[in-house]
Design a protein around this nucleic acid. Structure first.
Lengths: 343, 343
DNA sequence: CTGAAAGCGCTTACAG
DNA sequence: CTGAAAGCGCTTACAG
C-alpha cells in the first residue's frame, strides 16, 4: 500500500540501494538511472519514511522546543520567539516538536525521555525555572541544546537571551536624562532572572547619574498579573511622599495598570509622573498618552537560538555561544520627551 | 553507548523479546521476570527509541499541527488554541509536531510529505485558506485529521470551529434589544469564512428585529490591520448621515480603532454611538469605556479538536464530527447596558 | 556504477 | 511463559 524503496526498485528494475542513492543525490550513480528513478518516485508521490531513515542515519531532522508551562504559550512574546524559530528551522529543513516539560512524569523523566527517544536532534529550552541539574545531565550526555531567555554562568552552556541589563539601563537613563531623580520601579517576580538583570541596569544608570539607590522606590510586581499588578504596586507608590516623578514598569501591562492609577488620582502623565514600560506590546502605541517603552526582539531570540542549534548540529563552528539580543528604546509621549525638548 | 533492549537483555540474561514484553506490560510474562527487567531498565535510564518502535508499530504517538503562515502564531487566539491542544495531547501521551505549510516546497508537497513520512499519526489543520483539494487528498489517503476554525460542508470532514453565526447574532441582538436601529458593522476580510458567518448572524438578528439590511452600513476591514483598519472604516462610517447609532466591530482591535475615531470627533460612547467588539482580548476590559464584546473559546477549540483526533486514532466512536464551540456575550459599558436599564 | 548483505532498535507471530 | 526469527523501511560499507 505505502510507497517504499522496494516498490520503486521493482518498477525501475533496479536494486533498492540504487533507488536510495538516486534519492539521496549520491555521486555513485549515473545521471540516466538517477533521472529514471526520480521520475518514478515523483509519479508515485514517494516520500521517505522518516522513522526508518532516522533509525539508520541517527538523525531525525527535528528540533525539540521545551516549554515550562502551557501558559508560557500565551502572550505575544513567546509567539514571536516561536515564529523566529520556525522561520530558521523551516529554511534548514528541520521540523519542530513541542515537548512540554509539564506533568509529573515528564518532569521526572526529563531529559532522558527526549534524548533517548531519538525523536529530536537537539533542543531549545525556554524555561526560566529549568533546574540546572537537568542542564548538566544534558551536557553530560552531550546532547545539543540551547538555553533561551536567560544566561547561565557556565560558559559551556549555549544561551540566547534578551539583554535585560541593557534594557533596565537605557530605560532608566532616558529618565535621568530628562532630569528625573526619584525614579520608582515595578519589577516582575524577583524569582525571575529578568527582574534582577533589569534592576541591575536600573541601578547602574542611577549611579551614572549620581542618584542614590532608594529601596523604597522598588516594588515587586508579577508579570502574570499584568495590569492588576500594576494597579496594586502603583497604588502603594502613590502613597509615598514625596511622590516619585517617574515610574519604570518592567512590562507594558504593568505600565497600563500604573497609568490607570495615576490618572485616577488626577495626576498628569508625563507632567506629574513620567511612565516607561517594557515589551512594546502592540497596544502600547495606542494608550493615552502613547507609552514610551523598551522593545525586545523576541523574533530574533528565536531565530538566533535556532540558528545556533542548527550550526551545532551541522558541526559548524559557533563563534559565540552566549548571544545577547539587544533591546531598543521606543520613545513616545509618556515620558514627555518631546515637550522637554521644546521647552 | 545507547541503552537498548539488547543491552538490557544481556544484563538480565534473557532474550530481547522478553525485555520488550516486560516494558510493554504484556501478559505473556511472569511478574518476577518483569520486575527484574523493569528494575534494570530504570537503573539504566532506558527509554525506548521511538523511531524503531514507530517503524514496526506504525504509530508515532505524535500529532501534527498544520499552520498556514507563521504570522498566525501571533496573537493570543492561536496561543490559546495551542494550549488547549497541548493539554489534551500531553494527557494522552501524544507529542506535538508543528508543521508549517509555508514555503513553496512545503505547499507543493502537502500533505504527502507529512502523511508518508510516518512522523505523525494524525493532524490538526488550522488554515483558513487551506485548499479543499488538499483535504480531499488526505481523505483519500484516509489519513486522520481535524480541520480547525472553519466548517467544511462535506460531512465527511471533521471540523471544530467557533460558532461565528451565533457570535454575529448575539452581538447584534444585544444592540437591537437596546433599541438600536442603525447598526453598522466592520467585518474582517470578506475572503474569510469568519466574516461571512458573523455577517449572517448579524442579518438574522436584524431580521428578527424587523430592521431592514442596509448595505451602506457594512464596511470591509482587515483583521491583520487591526486598529488601523478600525480607524479607516470608522472614519468612512462617521461621514454618513444619519450617523449609525451603533458599530459592531468584528475584532476588539478594530473596535479600539473605532473608539479612537469616535472620541476624536467629540462623540460620546455609548450615548452617541454604542460599540461592540469581538474576541475579548485582555485589554478590552481596560478601555475607556470598557468594551462590550464577544468572547470566543479558543482553548476549547484546541482541546475539543485534539480530543476528537485522539478518539479517532484510538478508534473510539466519534458521535459528532462537526463541533461548534459556543461564544459568549461579555457585557461591559461600551453599549451602555447599565445606563439604559436604569433609565 | 550497481547489487547483495548487514544492520539501525524495536515488535510480534511462531515454536516449544 | 520464554526464545529464536522475521520484518518494519531505510542507509551504507563491501564486492564486483
Amino acid at each position: 500500500m505505502a510507497v517504499t524503496l522496494k516498490e520503486i526498485a521493482r518498477i525501475a528494475d533496479v536494486n533498492i540501494s540504487t533507488v536510495s542513492r538516486a534519492l539521496n543525490d549520491s555521486p555513485l550513480i549515473t545521471l540516466e538511472t538517477k533521472e529514471k528513478i526520480l521520475a518514478i518516485a515523483e509519479r508515485m508521490n514517494y516520500f521517505p519514511n522518516s522513522l526508518a531513515r532516522g533509525l539508520v542515519s541517527h538523525k531525525s531532522e527535528t528540533i525539540g522546543i521545551i516549554l515550562p508551562k502551557i501558559f508560557f504559550l500565551q502572550g505575544p512574546f513567546f509567539s514571536e520567539v516561536l515564529s523566529g524559530i520556525e522561520q530558521v528551522s523551516v529554511k534548514n529543513g528541520y521540523n519542530i516538536l513541542i515537548a512540554s516539560a509539564t506533568g509529573k512524569k515528564q518532569e521526572k523523566n526529563f531529559p532522558f525521555n527526549l534524548t533517548r527517544a531519538k525523536r529530536i536532534d537537539g533542543m531549545l529550552i525556554i524555561n526560566e525555572q529549568q533546574r540546572i541539574r537537568n542542564l548538566l545531565a544534558l551536557k553530560k550526555e552531550s546532547f545539543p541544546f540551547v538555553f533561551l531567555n536567560r544566561f547561565i554562568k557556565d560558559t559551556q552552556i549555549n544561551c540566547v537571551a534578551s539583554d535585560n541589563v541593557q534594557g533596565g539601563h537605557i530605560a532608566t537613563q532616558h529618565l535621568t536624562r530628562l532630569g528625573h531623580k526619584r525614579i520608582a520601579v515595578i519589577t516582575g517576580s524577583l524569582k525571575m532572572a529578568a527582574s534582577h538583570e533589569r534592576l541591575q541596569g536600573y541601578r547602574a544608570a542611577l549611579e551614572e547619574a549620581g542618584i542614590p539607590f532608594d529601596r523604597r522606590l522598588v516594588q515587586e510586581g508579577l508579570f502574570e498579573q499584568g495590569i492588576e499588578s500594576g494597579v496594586e504596586c502603583a497604588t502603594r507608590l502613590i502613597e509615598q511622599s514625596p511622590l516619585p516623578t517617574a515610574i519604570f514598569a518592567f512590562s507594558d501591562e504593568i505600565a497600563i495598570g500604573v497609568m490607570q492609577v495615576v490618572k485616577s488620582k488626577g495626576l498628569k502623565i508625563p507632567e506629574d509622573i513620567a511612565i516607561i514600560g517594557y515589551d512594546n506590546i502592540e497596544y502600547s502605541a495606542h494608550l493615552s498618552p502613547p507609552l514610551t517603552t523598551i522593545s525586545q526582539n523576541p523574533f530574533t531570540i528565536g531565530s538566533a537560538s535556532c540558528q545556533m542549534l542548527i550550526d551545532i548540529l551541522s558541526e559548524k563552528k559557533v563563534e559565540n555561544n552566549h548571544i545577547r539580543i539587544s533591546v531598543n528604546l521606543v520613545i513616545r509621549e509618556s515620558c514627555g520627551y518631546k515637550q522637554k525638548k521644546r521647552a
